Simulated scan of single mutants.
Amino acid sequence: MRNREFWDLVDEVFGRGYGRTLADDQMLTALGDRTAAQAIEAGVEPRVVWHALCDAMDVPDERRWGHDKFRQAPPPR
């Protein structure tokens, strides 16, 4: 996943306004108590950040990839 794809998914799944606020403000323990935006800026793999954000917000697997179900399969758990 590229950074652009991460931000596209944030906008699609959470809505542009709320998603950007969430990425800037929601502290994620899975990312070392950083926000998604801080983690992306620090070079954390966008896919890792995406899953941490979705896990924290209880986004079900079927909604994690937006409308394009074939965009990328979720990793095995």
Score class of each variant (00 low, 15 high):
57 M>H: 12
46 P>N: 03
11 D>Q: 10
40 I>Q: 07
5 E>W: 05
2 R>V: 02
25 D>I: 04
46 P>Y: 01
57 M>T: 15
28 L>F: 09
65 W>H: 11
47 R>M: 11
37 A>I: 01
9 L>D: 14
58 D>M: 12
57 M>P: 06
51 H>Q: 12
30 A>Q: 15
67 H>C: 01
69 K>H: 13
44 V>R: 15
1 M>G: 10
11 D>N: 13
25 D>H: 14
52 A>W: 11
39 A>N: 09
22 L>P: 04
5 E>C: 05
43 G>A: 07
66 G>E: 14
50 W>C: 03
12 E>H: 12
4 R>T: 11
10 V>Q: 00
75 P>I: 09
5 E>T: 15
9 L>M: 13
48 V>I: 15
40 I>D: 12
14 F>C: 08
28 L>S: 07
14 F>D: 02
71 R>K: 11
27 M>S: 12
45 E>P: 00
46 P>E: 00
8 D>L: 09
26 Q>A: 10
22 L>W: 03
1 M>Q: 06
18 Y>F: 13
68 D>Q: 13
8 D>I: 06
71 R>P: 01
61 D>C: 02
69 K>Y: 04
15 G>N: 08
20 R>H: 13
56 A>T: 14
5 E>R: 11
65 W>A: 10
14 F>H: 14
35 T>S: 08
59 V>Y: 14
19 G>Q: 10
35 T>W: 00
59 V>N: 14
61 D>M: 07
19 G>I: 08
13 V>E: 02
70 F>M: 13
56 A>M: 09
39 A>G: 08
18 Y>T: 14
32 G>F: 05
32 G>T: 06
60 P>D: 13
